[in-house]
Design a binder for these strands. Structure first.
Length: 244
DNA sequence: TCCTCATATCGTCAGCCCGG
DNA sequence: CCGGGCTGACGATATGAGGA
């Protein structure tokens, strides 16, 4: 684990006067890694910028003609690939199709306003066998296993009847029974966890990039410093030649 | 081969910040 | 004010190195 600067500073503190609130405040005031790195990059050349995610979205045409860098890729039992990108976009590609071609771009109903022309995936709550299902147009079902460290996804033909407790595209306004409310809450929680999981991954990736950037900056500055010291010594020699 | 330790990675929670 | 994103903190788990 990477020790934070604040923690090391705090360990040097002789008293416990600095309460956790203050420390928290100091920590929370830190700008995001993206901001810091972008500020660094504006300071000098050679410092890579962390791309704003928005810019990537902007670059992507509304029809999702290009394949966005997926957050997670899963292979189904039938050999198909499911890429879950940021923003809740699910892309399904068939083996044999050339890369981008053959992709279906699907947007989950609860991931914000879908772009025009996007296909709607109907997300259902936990089914009886402990799985979660995304209902995909074309009479297929993306099933997420609930157990195991790695979430697994399968594309299945839907079973004859919906599993017990499955709500098809339940809109908040149509929920009535406590069971439905509980399912909605569970569904929201699962979605929130999934998003936070991806956010944490992205955050860690940015942090690594940030640290790398700082390290390379240190290396550059050390070289600069060394050169300046040498230059200073040279100038000293010129200005005050030895009289021996 | 097994055990221990250090380190890395991941998921989750809590709290802050920011845009709408 | 609220919802969602970001990130520090924490615990769990995985992995690799080194010693018995």
């Amino acid at each position: 684990m990477v020790a934070t600067i604040a923690e090391t500073d705090e360990s040097a503190e002789s008293e416990d006067v600095i309460d956790s609130h203050k420390r928290r405040e100091i920590l929370s005031r830190r700008p995001s890694y993206r901001k810091i790195l972008n500020e660094l990059s504006s300071d000098g050349p050679g410092v890579p910028k962390i791309e704003e995610e928005k810019s990537e979205e902007e670059r992507t045409p509304p029809h999702i003609a290009t394949m966005a860098v997926p957050t997670s890729i899963y292979q189904t039992s039938t050999g198909q690939y499911i890429a879950i990108a940021q923003g809740g976009t699910i892309q399904i590609s068939n083996p044999g199709s050339d890369g981008v071609q053959g992709l279906q771009a699907l947007t989950m109903t609860n991931s914000g306003a879908p772009p025009p022309g996007a296909t709607i995936v109907q997300y259902a709550a936990q089914s009886a066998d402990g799985t979660q299902q995304f209902f995909v147009p074309g009479s297929q079902v993306v099933v997420q296993a609930a157990t195991g460290d790695m979430p697994t996804y399968q594309i299945r033909a839907p079973t004859t009847a919906l599993p017990q407790g499955v709500v098809m595209a339940a809109s908040p306004g149509s929920l009535h029974s406590p069971q439905q409310l509980a399912e909605e809450a569970t569904r929201k929680r699962e979605l929130r966890l999934m998003k936070n999981r991806e956010a944490a991954k992205e955050c860690r990736r940015r942090k690594k990039e940030y640290v790398k950037c700082l390290e390379s900056r240190v290396a550059v500055l050390e070289v600069q410093n060394k050169k300046l010291i040498e230059e200073l010594e040279t100038l000293k020699d010129i200005c005050s030649p030895k009289t021996d």
